[in-house]
């Protein structure tokens, strides 16, 4: 397809258009992804997550600087929440990153969650693939501001950075399940504020409660405003990457990701084929009305609908 060809030639407009197509669930989406797939698998994906206002976007901005200095090309996907009421969104993460807007080695894309609840947008994984095929060395994924349990990023990223700020609660908060469990690296941002050392110490104590680690998440203090600690974060990320690579964990991670993609793809195909057949045969509105009237029940009705589904062996 023309757009894919242009993307592989380095056309940024084609890259932007392709991300839109996959994000909008275009009918050609899977054909496009299929064509891109042989060109993927080379990007290293870093997730940045944390509470709203913790400084994720600023951290991404500073990290971009480090990565660019070392000559790497970087794609950024910045996710902000979509309103569950209107479907609209304010995507404002770019504000902090506009210094990199004109850098040809950086491509920044904002996405709304569009109904997804895990901290990412529905199409984040697919957008990553498009950026990967474009040839970005690194892809930074910034989640929405999360609470305690939005941990989808861990399925998507190779390395996950959890950004905390001082005065985020007492030490029991660090022991809770969810977001505190997914960090490969902890960042205590705004470390110039009072309480920063205590927060760092509490995370350290929490980490000490487990005795053995293959990889003990380092705790890095940063002040993005003054660009402090960013070099250390960048170093920690590189160390984590080489740990994953030498231990074979990266291969394992990616295998799990492919397993999930394959499962989702099968489920998607089954689902759309089943509905196609049902809709072509049965006036669903009548059936629904019958169920509403209590002349039928949804349980046996669903079984009956499925009873006549055929899966041909060799159609497209």
């Amino acid at each position: 397809m023309q757009l894919v060809k242009e993307l592989l030639e380095g056309n940024r407009r084609a890259l932007a258009r392709l991300i839109s197509l996959v994000e909008n669930g275009d009918p050609q989406k899977y054909d496009l992804l299929q064509e891109l797939y042989p060109h993927t698998g080379n990007s290293y994906v870093i997730g940045i997550t944390g509470a709203p206002g913790a400084g994720k976007s600023s951290l991404v901005d500073r990290l971009l600087k480090e990565m660019r200095r070392d000559g790497y090309s970087v794609g950024v996907i910045a996710v902000d929440p979509t309103s569950p009421f209107t479907g609209g969104a304010i995507l404002g993460d770019r504000i902090r990153m506009q210094d990199h807007a004109l850098d040809p080695g950086v491509f920044i894309r904002s996405m709304g969650t569009r109904g997804s609840l895990g901290g990412l947008s529905r199409a984040t994984q697919e957008a990553i693939q498009v950026l990967d095929a474009f040839g970005q060395d690194f892809i930074l994924v910034e989640t929405v501001g999360v609470g305690q349990s939005e941990v989808d990023i861990v399925k998507t990223a190779d390395s996950t950075v959890v950004v905390l700020t001082p005065a985020g609660g007492d030490s029991v908060q660090t022991m809770k399940a969810g977001i505190m469990e997914i960090a490969d690296i902890f960042v205590i941002n705004k470390a110039d504020l009072p309480g920063a050392e205590r927060t760092a110490a509490e995370v350290g104590v929490m980490l000490d409660m487990k005795e053995q680690y293959d990889w003990r998440p380092p705790v890095v203090s940063t002040v993005t405003l003054r660009e402090e600690g960013i070099d250390k974060l960048w170093r920690s990320l590189q160390e984590h990457r080489s740990y994953l690579e030498t231990s074979g964990k990266l291969h394992q991670l990616r295998k799990e990701r492919v397993r999930r993609e394959l499962t989702e793809q099968v489920e998607h195909l089954v689902k759309s084929r089943v509905w196609q057949q049902i809709r072509s045969r049965i006036p669903l509105e009548d059936l629904i009305e019958e169920i509403v009237q209590r002349r039928r029940d949804p349980y046996s009705a669903a079984r009956d609908l499925l009873a006549n589904i055929v899966f041909p062996h060799n159609d497209s």
């Binding site: 209107t86 479907g87 609209g88 969104a89 304010i90 995507l91 770019r94 504000i95 506009q98």
Partner: peptide, 10 residues
């Protein structure tokens, strides 16, 4: 936003 659009604010 309230009209259901995605607004990229820079």
């Amino acid at each position: 936003r309230d009209a259901g659009m995605e607004v990229i604010y820079t």
